[in-house]
Design a protein around this nucleic acid. Sequence first.
DNA 1: ATGCGAGCCTAC
DNA 2: GAAGGTAGGCTCGCAT
Length: 944
Amino acid sequence: MNGEGRRRDFRYNRSSKKHKLIRTAEEELEAKLGFDLFSEGEKRLGWLLTFASSSLEDQETNKVSSCVDLYFVSQDGSCFKSKYKFRPYFYAATKDKMEIDVEAYLRRRYESQIANIEIVEKEDLDLKNHLSGLRKSYLKLSFDTVQQLMSVKSDLLHVVERNQSKSDATEAYELILMGKREQKSQDFLDCIVDLREYDVPYHWYDVSISSNDVMLERRTDLLQRAEVHVCAFDIETTKLPLKFPDAEYDLIMMISYMIDGQGYLIINRECVGDDIEDLEYTPKPEFEGCFTVTNVKNELELLKKWFAHMREEVGFQCDKNQGEYRAKFACHLDCFAWVKRDSYLPQGSHGLKAVTKAKLGYHPLEVNPEDMVRFAMEKPQMMASYSVSDAVATYFLYMTYVHPFIFSLATIIPMSPDEVLRKGSGTLCEMLLMVQAYKANVICPNKHQSDPEKFYNNHLLESETYIGGHVECLESGVFRSDLPTSFKLDPSAYEQLINNLDRDLQYAIRVEGKIDLDSVSNYDEVKNVIFEKLARLRDEPIRVECPLIYHLDVAAMYPNIILTNRLQPPSIVTDEVCTACDFNRPGKTCLRKLEWVWRGEIFMAKKSDYYHLKKQIESEFVDGTDVQLAKSFLDLPKTDQQLRLKDRLKKYCQKAYKRVLDKPVTEVREAGICMRENSFYVDTVRSFRDRRYEYKGLNKVWKGKLSEAKATGNSIKIQEAQDMVVLYDSLQLAHKCILNSFYGYVMRKGARWYSMEMAGVVTYTGAKIIQNARLLVEKIGKPLELDTDGIWCALPGSFPENFTFKTRDMKKKLTISYPCIMLNVDVARNNTNDQYQTLTNPVTKTYTTHSECSIEFEVDGPYKAMILPASKEEGILIKKRYAVFNDDGTLAELKGFEIKRRGELKLIKVFQNKKYRSALKTHQSGSSPVRGGNSGWRVVFVSC
DNA sequence: ATGCGAGCCTAC
DNA sequence: GAAGGTAGGCTCGCAT
């Protein structure tokens, strides 16, 4: 799979005798359910629904090969399946110039298992001086089946592990001996120093297409998904009081399900008090639920009915091994997985009821689980409605959110829809990076493993990481746009703003507006208004004014820091790397140095104590005194050993030093960033950022078309526009999800592209940006709270806000937010990367250099009010918790409170209570400074 | 009482 | 077997 688009032309251009297959039972069934194996005939067009790994056997030779089963849906709604052969492979690296010998040896050693070995040249970003064009040779071992690959891989992994653990000294010694000795098989094995890409999901490998086999051709012009059948179901069972249902003895009371919008309900009369008639549950006009009801006499009949219908509609069969009814071609998409990973709802709102309220916008029927069994007997009609309501909610949640999201994500990630839904965001990220690396002929690094025995200043490290985002709370209390507050401004800062006014406005016009300064007709007019405002603030710096409550935040800060600084794990270089590089010349600009802060926690014990304990424990036996059960410590798995050793060390520290860990150490470090490294990583990030912008734009376009369609009343066009709005919104969300994961991914356990330095540089750069913003804001207004990429602040009411520049030809208008551009000029001055290099000629290795800065503040507001809670303790300010209100009185933001709904109610009560209002006024206009000594009124949020 | 670390959940 | 990260608030249990 190349991971780009799921709609493919499908061709099968041969007279297929060679691979004539006997229909297996699976194929028989799949054919019955519409997925006929497409093996000859005209070229077909299909939308790839899903795929699964499989194998096929050549009838003549009985030779088994790995393949992927591809399940397609045609434009007319019919389906077909095809088997697409591939050869799984992995790479092996050898000692220098040993490729040919090792190849010959491996061919002999694994004669019956290896299908082919090729020597290939790959871009190896770990290779010294690779920018000069040096490539690394790898043996590409291909196999007919995954089983064969697995067997050879595990064999060679042991060899490589042994070879890698040998010291350099030994290696050098052996090299001298080699020439003199007759070469034995062991010598060739010793030459295999690394394996790569051996743990890649194997259906992923597929790229080559042989001339007499299945041909796949991507159709990038077609974007619309095919129509597929969707079934959402919900099962109600009996249960014991205060217990969860148990399949051992509990009965199914009813099954409700919706297939393509039509509802069905099967009633088990053993548990339900009365026959139920067909019913309707339509919580909203757009969520119509008409249910056909079948009443059966017992659970067996219920299951029979259910399975019969599932077989007929969806094509499920029983997998005897798993004991599950599944169909290979039917995607099983768990809406709950979407809720957990993609809904952005708080942990406490992950139940179906809460999700229905939040995402579908209606209140579903709710029944206390403890009442359900009784109600089934006593109020059967009510329980039927309840059961059906869950199926309706699930169906429309899936149709509205999950389906478009997952299938659009699946067009860019080479995984089946089921996996795209269930995998972590870091894994999705890695898959995308692997696609990009593959295209750039870059060999993938192996999964990162942390060094279990790292020291710092003669002490064992318990853990190490980097300083992350910067958070501060500077005020507490209530800030209202209609309630004057006191400002103590810094006149020199205003003087500075005035002096820089031309520079800042011209920056906004040229860089943000991309407009020629000369074409602006009202420049002086705007400038003078701002100048007047700033001058008045400068001249009267102590003042009481209604505040402008603003939120200024950097859009997609971490991705844009990555892109601005060309940050990627393989770009982090040491002096040693640079020294070996051809581009390392005096006055070079290709090395960019950026700071970050390392933080480590060390054990109290000294390194020598640690080694002493290690020696001791290594001579011991574990698992009791019984000689027969006793096992040498050294026979335990490595990770187990390290765990036990650390445990021993902890006990020792506790005894000898009265504490285990020393206080955390931090250290400012400098990372060297290569501005020339192969750009596949930043390219992946950028293409995501840009494609997301594209989809956001298209979403806006279709929103326009939707309102047009609504105006004309054409229901077909309304529906079409509505669908496109959802489609593009889900596409932009898909990109946002991945975009945000490219930063965290570099510190993920087992990441192929791992880098603590890179993560540290990203967060430290961000922390400096937000702290610089605060430095400015505290001179010209009041910062209230800042967190990582945004700052909440109160500016004096007379502070210049929005202005519109017009061009002489009247074609363009540019509206600027003065607080925003004031910060952006600062950001650009401090963060522009003038060393950004782009490879423009791969043959001559020529690079062009340009300046890059895509880090920009955006502005929200002004708002009606912001409330920052105080601690119960004197003078302690609380971060990450606040409430913000819009001008119309609605709640704009409520952050940090576990019980949002309850918190909201409480807050509004506090806010509206007359008694408190006067108290707030006293606090707000009072002369005592709020920061630090908060002796006045405090808003405290209490959850109960 | 007070201080701590663990566990849970949230902000970004 | 699969796995984005760090910062921070709050509760609770446990040791002092």
